[in-house]
Amino acid sequence: MIIAVASGKGGTGKTTIATNLALSIGEDTGENVQLIDCDVEEPNSHIFLKQLKLEKVQDVNIPIPCFDMKKCNFCGECSDFCQYNAIAVMKNDVTFFPELCHGCGGCLLVCQRDAITEKEKNIGIIERGIVDGIEFYQGLMNVGEPLAVPIIRELKKRMDERKSVVLDVPPGTACPVIEAVRGADFCILVTEPTPFGLHDLKLAVEVVRDMRIPIGIIINRDGIGDDRVEKYCEEENLPVILKVPNRREIAGLYSRGIPFTEEMPEWREKFIELHNTIKEAVRG
């Protein structure tokens, strides 16, 4: 079963939920658990896994064009074709902007003079580690690189659907989120009971509903704001599957990279229960 943990807005506690959930079901049920951090721009889950030794298992590359100036006649076909404006052809020069290139291979196809070949460009890596019964993967995008989706795509090839897979999804509702959530059996949306939280939750609900994936809401820092999030969930028939109170103790543990279920074992039970609820909902 694949559970995606997402949130329209960053900083709502998505990583806290993903790591505590994975740790709880991993330790107590002895189930095979995979935790995959798809937030490749700012992967943070690893911080909560003590004694984790990460090992690079893969380079993520995209193919980019190379131009052979001896063959090129500066016709400009490649530049006209490229949808991402990654190539500019002047009278007797070709300028290529690698950070705009999506690696589609189109320029190679359209060039009539065989002036283009491809080479691999590294945009990030995938790392793996095993700790506390959890098989953990994360993608790490190189600083200054713009493309997250190819890394998420490679990362998700590591999923083993026979296991309980927990995905930590990037924030927002743009295409990296779709790439990460796609194929999940259930999606947890983590939110805060504040106007910002509600606004971004609504956007996320829209997206996940479009993908026809069942949703459960977790309200984090419960008590900090008002009840508009709960009212919204009620109106929209969205089950609130857990509330985590706004406690300074939890924030403090988070700041030290300690999963709060470790210090507050009663919460481990709640996460296991949560996992069972989700299982039932999926079997439905």
């Binding site: 700012e42 911080i47 600083v143 700041s255 030290r256 990279g257």
Partner: peptide, 21 residues
Amino acid sequence: AEPTLSGIHDVERIVGVTYHF
């Protein structure tokens, strides 16, 4: 920035970007 372990990590990455540019 936020004074959490993950916050430190995030700051390092974002400073890498401002530095880069």
